[in-house]
Every structure is written in structure tokens, then in C-alpha cells.
Amino acid sequence: MTSPQTPDNARRKFIAAAGAGVAGLGFTAIAPGLHLMAVGEANAAPTPRKAGEPANPAVRWGLLIDANKCAPGCTKCIDACHTENGVSANLPDPRQNSQWIRKIELVDRRPGKTRGHVTQLPMMCQHCAEPPCVDVCPTGASMKRADGIVLVDRHTCIGCRYCMMACPYKARSFVHAPLNDQNPEVPRGKGCVESCTLCVHRIDKGQQPACVESCPEGAMTFGDLNDADSAIAKRIASVPTTQVRADLRLNPGVRYEGL
């Protein structure tokens, strides 16, 4: 799945060709032309949505992460995320702490000349177009917003953790203890499952996700995958990129470059 010529490629070409950004991304009906609204500057901030306007189904927010640029030992994106979202790590058993984003270190063990090569990358909710967490959630608390962001509606989450069993990326955390230092814009609480929200509260204000903004290497590109003119879509159309666990055909909204 790490080789870039799997379904990935076909899909990428398809996206490029489709232009209007329809693509087999799980959206059934999209008004052609709407994509023109989101203008694709390199890493441009999204346009803030007007008051009273719902999320735009023509848009699909995504991230492109360049693993080549991700610096060893740097945890800026993680710090930024956890500060923005008020995620703290103070439980005695570290395995019970939430981590919305984490740094993964990969050592290549495949035979060949890349053997032993070390790669770094941040890992978080992949915001799949076909999210297994949404399929399995008994109450429908796991949900995908119209613009492709996968969220947990913590007003209906009962804390059964079935979504955590279903997620192939270990992207979700369960809040194991009561909290009281939440950021007002990011409510979080005991007994519910949570994960990266792509900083919805920032996107809706026309800002970038905290991690993207904080990366000193510019390794993360945020934008509208459906908009062929956006920096992210252009980049995905021109360089080989990888979907993690492409074999599951979940069509994640987070793509990696340099794997």
C-alpha cells in the first residue's frame, strides 16, 4: 500500500480529470460550478462561512503531508494541536491519555535500497470519505459533515468505543477521566470518544487547522480536495502520494507524500 501506483494513482488521475471535483469521493450529488467559490492559493486559508450558512457539500477538506519535510524531533504540530484543543496528558497510565495527533517514526524494513531509511510523519484522523467509524456507530454520533470532516457528535456519543475498534488508524481516543480545563471553543468531556476535528471551529472562521499553521517546514498543505485549482489538489495531481491503508478503500482525506 505504500507504493504509489495502487488505486491511488487511478483515483488521482480521476480527480484531476474530473476537474469539477466530483470524483468518486462519496458525494452523490454536487452542484457543478460551486467549487469555483473556493479559490486555491497555496495553503490559502478557507473563506469564512457566512453566519447561518451550513457546511458546503461541494467542498472536501483535506490535508497533504510531505513526510520528506517532516523534521526529526520536531513536535510543533502536536503542541499546537493540543494547545488549540486543550488536550492535556496527565493520567498515570499514558495509554489512557488522548492524542489527537501523534508523530510516527517509520523504519523501512523492506528489502531494497531504501532499507533502514527512517521517515517521520504526523498521524491523525484521516477524515475518510467512507469512514468505518461512522458505519459502526450505534447512535449515529460518529458523523461526516457535508464538507468531509469526520466528527463525533458528543451530545449523542454513549462511549461504547466500537468506533475505536473499527478505526484502522488508531485515530480516536476515549476520555478516561473528568476534565475541567477545556478551551471554550472545543468542548471535551469524560466518557466520550474524540479525535482530530481538523479544527472545525477554525476552518469555519476561515482559519487553517492549528497543526498546518504551526509547521515550520511547511510540510502540511490544507485545502479543498474537490477544487482542481487548489494547491492541494494540484499537488496531489502532480506528485505520487499515498493513502494509508489504501487496501481498505476508505478514501482518506489526509494524503502523504514521500513514503
Partner: peptide
């Protein structure tokens, strides 16, 4: 359940794609 107090939610919200929901 993490939120056993929301058992009513489990009964009033139903997601047809969830095996857990069918149960």
C-alpha cells in the same frame, strides 16, 4: 458505557449501518 447515563440516547438514535445498532 462511557456515558451509561445516556442509555435513552442509545434507544432513540438508531444508525442502520451499525451492527451494534441492530443489536
Amino acid at each position: 458505557l462511557g456515558r451509561a447515563d445516556r442509555i435513552i440516547v442509545a434507544m432513540t438514535h438508531f444508525n442502520p449501518t451499525s451492527v451494534f445498532g441492530w443489536n
